[in-house]
Amino acid sequence: MVPDKTGASVRDAGTQFLLTGPGTPPRVLLRSLWEARTLVGVLARKDFFVRYRRTRLGLLWAIALPVVQAAVLAAVFSSLVSGVGAATGDRGTSYAVFVFAGMVPWAYFSAAFTAGATSVVDGANLAQRIYFPRLVLPLVAVTTALFPLVATLLVLLGLVVVLGPGLGLATLWVLPGAGLVMVVALGLALLFSAAQVYLRDLRFAVSAGMTVLFYLTPVIYPVTRAPEALRPVVELLPAAGPVELFRHAVGAAGPGLWRSVAASLVWAVVAGGVGFVVHCRRDRVLADLL
């Protein structure tokens, strides 16, 4: 039982713990995360279903919100910005399907990342009283948002059937799209959830940033409509990859699809990697600052 180079601490994750410093070695942290997998599921299910308790429409809200948002955006933009509707793809994808295909991963990204970024601070009540790896909290946030993701995905498939281009093998691209948006949201949430403990300003910076990102990321317009100079930036934003993959599934991806996917993967790996290291090193003392 020698303290290792992370500056710490826990040897045996299972039934005993030895604390000599603020960190948890990566291997031990991963193992205790694995042991906490039921906890993640239980907390995520609780967070999601409790939200709709005592509402008349219940789970319908999980679908209704993104649908209304997408409908309004589709109506406003197709009438205000001329030509947007026409330029949405080679397979004649309707603008409604085009926008909703962007909204599904965006809504997930926004919900999962925003909740994940503040998860450790918001979970103070629990985190200060009982130990579990603090990584559980962003994981719960990202998992909770999966419920509405599935719901909106079903609506998207309905739209694809009704408004075209119809289901096909290409539709399966929503699956890697969903996988990618989860990974990106988780990666960023890992980093921000730990950073937020030290810098509370991030809560507000994140919500400001999300507003900017919403319009920069090609969610409601095709990449090709972005100003030429901005296009490299727009294509490389964290959520651009999943959005483009969903577009691909409805036959309306931009020319930079794979560049965007690669960029999203880089975001996920870099932010997630740094976030994981920070969590490893500060796992046992994050609660001190809550």
Binding site: S9, Q16, F17, L18, L19, T20, Q128
Partner: peptide, 17 residues
């Protein structure tokens, strides 16, 4: 209960808390 770590010294707890 393992919610915080000591600044110096060591804490060993055996079993479920």
């Amino acid at each position: 209960c393992g919610v915080t770590a000591p600044t110096t010294g060591s804490v060993l707890v055996r079993g479920r808390v």
